[in-house]
Design a protein around this nucleic acid. Structure first.
Length: 800
DNA sequence: ACGCGACGCGCC
DNA sequence: AAAGGGCGCGTCGCGT
């Protein structure tokens, strides 16, 4: 083990951002000028450049042109027992609609093989008839069922082969996933980049768009295309070898288990989830859209009235000298003068959705006094809420409605696939540094939960029913598991309320003093307040919140907040110790581990208080080494001494002084504190993510769930939703909860899950809300209409 | 026309 | 001196 405990932990924030910049100049899309250059000329040029870059692989690449050759390659793979696999598609990254162009295989001791399937004649467009068929591919891949299959971004290959050839295969290793598990801070986990970084730094950079100049890949001669395609599987294999060697080192034992137990198996689970997709209730969506557009129209007309009233004031302002000045804006922390004057920036009528224009309206024209010193021209919601003007109230309402409409109500139906009218989000296993999934196109993890109407857009397929469950307080329970805090453990064992327990520990009072209701059911207003404060405190503690912000969120004075944090530490000493030890260990090793060994590397923790950068030279980072110039070193040492025990005031002076000598001083305090805040949270958030992934795998592989035809559809961090045959609703729901609870027994903490069974997402809550409306006097006829059938059934049920 | 940073805001 | 963790997306407004 080296000085930092892990050889990947040497890249600081500074270095990382520099590399990210280098990255940007990768080849961009080729412009379409097809009319000027003939296809033949282009192909000629492509052939030359492909050979120039990849010609060296020609001798170790073969194109498979017959079933016999294919069979014998597959047999060879079976003998060797391990193979890298990669698919190529027709310029499409969407497995649902793409065509399979060819398959690539590489196994040790053999040339890399490209098996073309759908290349066409560039003149006639006809499929080259000698190629193997999708049926052949399926047959061969299925023979690999006992062979270890290696992929790079195997989710794509899995989905492509399932969609185009109707075959599936187990993923033994994925080099993209492994790369991220080995170091989540690298600027790229892409195959070619990883190959350059880990295997051969001399390898020339290239990408498929850039090599084939945006042409339809199918028209490229398979022999030529093979040089690109088959090389991918070769590189994947080489990467695997490197990663395997790394991961069998004793210090990486837990990472390897994490990969085998969680990260590799989850690939197939997520692939299937994405392929299934989730249905939208079309009728309901249309109704909802109409309802919200109507609401928006009303707000807009009121806003127009308000603006009309302000017109004289606006006109007058535009003539003031201030309005005629050129405005400033902030770019990377520096003030930059705009080309437009303030008056020119303000449209007529002012665009209230534009932060710039709204700021002018509020602070310049309406002379609203500054609310947040740190953000004097801010227009965020918490600032607007403190401005007591009718127009501002309308703006908040307009914003909410616009956001709901643009981001969800009107946006989601547009994203449904034409093929099956369903939403097929992309769940990105590598999307976060902590181990959580991220989600795009659309991001199902940001569908409003407070506004229940939006989630109601999602529904089960006909004959199916949505079965969901969320972990109750997943992260606090993990904190309890880590710290073994006796008060928290007891509280969970007894099924008591977490926040009331926190309250009694912090305030030193009775448990019931911190509950919303007394033991006999009567209201306890003070308790309600305290409990809410504890909820905020918990969040604050796990995110490393400072006392100032904490006091704002807890609605108390700064002194009270400081006292509460202090009392938390004395009231829960095991938690406090665990947090301290986490930070200490992190500062020493440069990384933290989650409950199952996932690492979050925080190299900034190893940074010195100050770094130095010579003008026009690389930054000097003592962890990495200097540029080696003696004169530089002397200068730096001089300033290092000057910076010892320096006051905040003098720092600026010294910084300026150094600048004159060509030395830039970089203060790392901010980076270091940020990393300190991250390290506690990363362990908790990471463990929660791993736990949910373990549950997903258990659910996917469970025979009973298979019997119920249960399919996972959505994961939202601590919440899982799937659908199953209607008749098995109860059984599947019970089983779901059981599997979620038992997948992490090693936590040795009580786990609780809250299940739901419904036709639409959040329909239970939705129906309850409507029943509440009924109880407040709306007639039953008005109540029941305009809702999906399933909701009406629930309402009737609740009314009885 | 497009890329990008900043902002604001949706979620856990 | 002061510092809330992890995401994605739509809009605006500038730059190319």
């Amino acid at each position: 083990m080296n000085l930092w405990g892990d050889e990947f932990v040497v890249e600081s924030s500074i270095e990382k951002s520099k590399k990210a910049l280098d990255k940007v100049n990768s080849p961009k899309k080729v412009k379409k000028k097809e009319s000027k250059i003939s296809i033949e000329e282009k192909l000629f040029h492509i052939e030359k450049s492909v050979y120039k870059i990849l010609g060296k692989y020609a001798d170790s690449t073969i194109v498979i042109k017959s079933k016999d050759e294919y069979d014998s390659y597959i047999d060879k793979c079976k003998t060797i027992g391990i193979v890298a696999l990669d698919t190529e598609t027709n310029n499409s990254l969407d497995p649902l609609t793409c065509k399979l162009m060819g398959l690539c295989l590489y196994t040790e001791g053999m040339p890399a093989a490209y098996i073309p399937v759908n290349h066409i004649n560039k003149d006639t467009g006809e499929r080259l008839s000698w190629q193997l068929t999708e049926e052949d591919i399926k047959e061969g891949v299925e023979k690999l069922n006992s062979v270890k299959i290696i992929t790079h971004n195997g989710k794509f290959d899995y989905k492509v082969l399932k969609c185009t050839c109707n075959c599936t295969f187990p993923i033994y290793w994925d080099s993209q996933v492994a790369a991220r598990i080995l170091n989540e801070n690298e600027w790229s986990a892409r195959l070619k980049d990883q190959y350059v970084m880990k295997i051969d730094p001399t390898e020339e950079k290239y990408s498929i768009d850039h090599l084939f100049e945006g042409l339809e890949y199918a028209i490229i001669d398979p022999e030529l295309f093979a040089l690109y395609a088959a090389t991918d599987s070769y590189k994947t294999y080489r990467l695997y070898q490197y990663q395997f060697k790394e991961l069998i080192k004793p210090e990486n034992k837990r990472l390897l288990s994490l990969l085998y137990d969680v990260e590799f198996p989850i690939i197939e689970v997520v692939s299937e989830m994405e392929l299934d997709g989730i249905a939208l209730d079309k009728e309901y969506c249309e109704r909802l859209s109409k309802k919200y557009h109507h609401k928006l129209d009303i707000i807009n007309s009121e806003l127009n009235k308000e603006l009309e009233n302000l017109r004289p004031q606006i006109t007058a302002w535009k003539l003031t000298p201030y309005a005629q000045e050129k405005a400033f804006r902030i770019v990377k922390g520096e003030e930059v003068q705009n080309k437009k004057t303030r008056a020119e920036q303000l449209e007529d009528p002012p665009a209230l959705t534009s932060p710039t224009q709204l700021a002018i309206l509020l602070y310049d024209i309406l002379k609203v006094s500054v609310i947040d010193k740190n953000n004097p021209r801010g227009t965020g919601e918490d600032i607007l809420k403190q401005i007591d003007l009718p127009i501002v109230k309308l703006i908040i309402e307009q914003r909410t409605l616009l956001k709901l409409l643009d981001a969800f109500i009107d946006a989601l139906p547009k994203l449904a696939s034409e093929r099956d009218n369903k939403i097929h989000s992309n769940f990105n296993q590598l999307g976060t540094d902590t181990g959580r999934f991220s989600c795009t196109n659309p991001n199902l993890q940001q569908i409003p939960a407070r506004n229940i109407e939006v989630r109601m857009m999602f529904c089960a397929d006909p004959g199916k029913i949505l079965i969901g469950a969320d972990y109750s307080q997943q992260e606090p329970r993990i904190l309890t598991a880590f710290s073994r805090d006796h008060k928290l453990l007891e509280s969970y064992k007894a099924g008591r309320d977490l926040y009331a327990t926190l309250g009694s520990g912090v305030y030193g009072n009775d448990y019931w003093e911190n509950m919303e209701h007394w033991e006999d059911g009567s209201d306890n207003l003070e308790g309600k307040k305290r409990r809410k404060q504890m909820k905020t405190l918990y969040l604050g503690m796990s995110y490393g919140m400072g006392p100032k912000k904490l006091s704002e969120d807890m609605h108390c004075s700064l002194d009270e907040a400081i006292k509460i944090v202090e009392d938390f530490h004395t009231g829960f000493p095991e938690v406090s110790d665990w947090m301290r030890k986490t930070e200490e260990e992190a500062c020493q090793k440069g990384y933290v581990e989650d409950f199952w060994g996932r690492r979050r590397r925080l190299p900034d923790l190893l940074l010195p208080e100050y770094s130095f950068k010579m003008e026009n030279k690389k930054s000097f980072n003592p962890l990495i080494g200097s540029s080696g110039n003696k004169v530089d070193e002397e200068l730096i040492n001089k300033y290092k001494n000057k910076l010892k025990n320096i006051s905040f005031k003098d720092y600026d002076k010294v910084k300026q002084e150094a600048k004159k000598e060509g030395l830039e001083i970089i203060k790392n305090g901010g980076f270091i504190s940020r990393a300190k805040r991250q390290c506690v949270n990363a362990r908790i958030q990471g463990s929660a993510a791993t736990m949910t992934k373990k549950a997903m795998i258990a659910i996917y592989n469970d025979d009973l769930m298979k019997k119920y035809n249960f399919r996972l559809l959505i994961g939202v961090h601590d919440e899982l939703i799937g659908q199953c045959d209607e008749q098995y609703a109860k059984e599947a729901s019970d089983r779901l909860v059981y599997l979620m609870k038992t997948c992490a027994l090693d936590l040795n903490v009580p786990i609780k899950c809250d299940p739901t069974i419904e036709k639409h997402w959040y329909e239970e809550e939705y129906s309850k809300n409507i029943v509440k409306e009924y109880n407040s006097g709306v007639s039953i006829d008005n109540l029941v209409q305009n809702h999906p059938e399933s909701t009406r059934e629930l309402i009737v049920q609740y009314l009885q």
